[in-house]
Design a binder for these strands. Structure first.
Lengths: 219, 219, 219, 219
DNA sequence: TATGAATGAGGGTTCATTCAT
DNA sequence: CATGAATGAACCCTCATTCAT
């Protein structure tokens, strides 16, 4: 879900032996720059330079900078599974561990950069949600897809979690922890608040698991 | 901590009977516009128009747009107590209820606007943290101040919370919940994810309170 | 001579049962758009869209936008008789009434559009005469052809008009009245100045006819 | 009413000893270029270069290229008297000779340039009347002002012209002759059609004068 | 100190045209 | 011959900032 991953996969969907085409080069450059600098701070001319493309080519493929942003967010939706979720599901089959493997994955992506970047979706959510109404649904789609994976894992956990637990709400909270934690990590250039939040989430899960376990043995 | 509150208090620190001076008018306009539109999307000329001020005047008082941003963030720091925390502390003396009164206060600020705005500090954190190194500490200062109040309340809760609970981490998590929850609220224009996250935090607190209570009666 | 007429006849010269070919579709679209928007304000891409044609196809048939303009003007020359003059000559056989039937025809073409358009040749004359030296002769050819018809009618009027009248000059004046009148009609979105000018021309003709009549009876 | 005259008078309203200010330099350059090349064919950057001005300066003074066009047309309105009408009224006091002195003045302005330019108002009338609804009234204002002078002269002619002559219509026709004549002059790069039209107008006047004279002596 | 015109680099976008497929 | 992506100069305009008054 970070820009490097997106670039790495620019040729992967569908896989091909050809050099990355213009559209992909533009999308990759735009995604990277929007992630690194934000949408408003990224000039179209910078995208063009980085993608090695002429203005006319870009505007043949995307009617506007806003439409390019929309395409970048569509691409993030496509890449949600292969880049974000698949590695996590390959790492562990325990549904609850998957939740924390996902949170750990973000830590591993961004701590080498000293949290200089943040979640590209979250960044855009705060930057353009108000000014670009047509973009909001695409951000929401990314958030919904992300939460849906977590929700499914929580469902997979079955009665290891309390029966009366609202798993949809908990899934939303996992996203909240990731986004709120990364925001503080970026501000402090330190993992502390992110780790703290994940730690408290882990403590919460432990209490839930204990309660469910008690409920199962002594109903 | 929202823009209206800031405007309401533009003459209040220090209190005075004079009309708002140029500096205050600029700060108020800039804070409001940065909150509503973001930093990069707000032109200096818009600030000038809204503040009723000439470019020369602004640049006499603030050497640059970035310096103005810094001043806005300093002001948010000053207003943290009177605008954000004092109302919460007046509402309830129960330290744990204060945590949730604080989270409720944000809900009440932004739900009438259908969550069109978000936390002004959080917005700026994601927009300028990387590009403006000199601004990061000021954002951090706001986050730290905010968390410190929560931390103090958690300390005030004494042994109602488990003795081995890391209260600093939990305070960071409360901020995480607020920021992560608001981000999703803005994207969906709905309180659902915010309420979900706060609800899960409440459930976590309930489990902590129960555990501490059990610990006290049966040590 | 207006765009609708040109379109109506796109398949008519020479008559054919086939669907309009690419070249005709381009010429029709270009003529209509140049008439409606002017030459400079009409983008090649708009012509392509309206004609349903690709850039490569257009540039196979016409080496440049300027060449397309030339072709449009050639087409107007071809259509001068069937679209502009033939209907007038069919309407009346009186050569002098033909002059005013011609002027009336323009009124009937453009007043339903509230004079939003003007003479397509006149428009281009003012827009491209200086910048496109190779186009000027084609405009001139249209004006000359137009005036030649009027001139012929004036000749046909024989001694109903004064013998010493310069009929070529009067023919030029009829075109002057049409173009100058339409220009004012466009500016005012009203027929007033056009009707005024035609009315004065009619008064002039009446005086000429009276003088010639007097000259014939009392030489 | 041509561009050189406008430039010559750039400092004249109100008269001043100072160098032409930015606004005047822009207006002069824009008027000249719109006249020489047309509105659409004139780039803002060309205006800036010719005026020796930066883009920001232009856009401080005029909100858009369209607004600049409006200002140019306002200026033409202001200059109608001093540039166009005053010299004619100084040349002769005979009201009817003034009509033909006016038409002669245009000939003298444009024939040295081989009629490469045309009436700047007429050019714009045909180029932007449809696309710029806010500009039309300004063009109309110029035409109305121009015709009003002619109308007044015709009124001044008193009973030298027939009592039942519609002088307003005749004034409109004088403008028609000027514009329609200049259009043909530009297309042919020759005075012939202009002179022809003016000649026929003179013949018409002569007939009117004769008729009025006859009417006075033998009522 | 206040004013608002001036600065000039850069903003996003469209243009007429070319060319590989 | 058709296709439509690619070209790159030019389009109109806004930006943060400076400076003469």
């Amino acid at each position: 879900m970070n820009v490097q991953s997106l670039s790495d996969h620019s040729m992967a969907f569908p896989p091909t032996n050809q050099p990355p085409d213009t559209r992909s080069r533009i999308l990759d450059a735009a995604a990277r720059l929007f992630h690194e600098q934000g949408f408003n701070a990224t000039g179209v001319s910078t995208i063009l330079r980085e993608a090695g493309v002429n203005p006319g080519s870009l505007y043949n493929l995307f009617p506007s900078k806003d439409a390019l942003l929309a395409a970048v967010l569509e691409r993030y939706t496509e890449l949600l599974h292969p880049i974000v979720m698949e590695p996590v599901e390959k790492k562990t089959s325990d549904p609850i561990e998957r939740v924390f493997a996902l949170l750990q994955q973000y830590r591993e992506w961004y701590s080498p950069l000293e949290f200089r970047l943040g979640c590209p979706i979250g960044n855009l959510a705060l930057e353009v949600a108000d000014s670009h109404p047509e973009i909001r649904p695409l951000i929401q789609q990314n958030f919904d897809g992300w939460s849906a994976y977590v929700r499914k894992w929580l469902d997979d956990a079955g009665d290891r979690l309390p029966r009366d637990l609202d798993r949809k709400q908990l899934a939303a909270t996992v996203l909240t922890v990731m986004e709120g934690g990364l925001m503080q990590a970026r501000s402090s250039r330190s993992a502390a608040a992110y780790d703290a939040s994940v730690g408290q989430l882990r403590a919460y899960f432990d209490l839930l698991l204990a309660r469910a376990s008690a409920g199962r043995t002594q109903p």
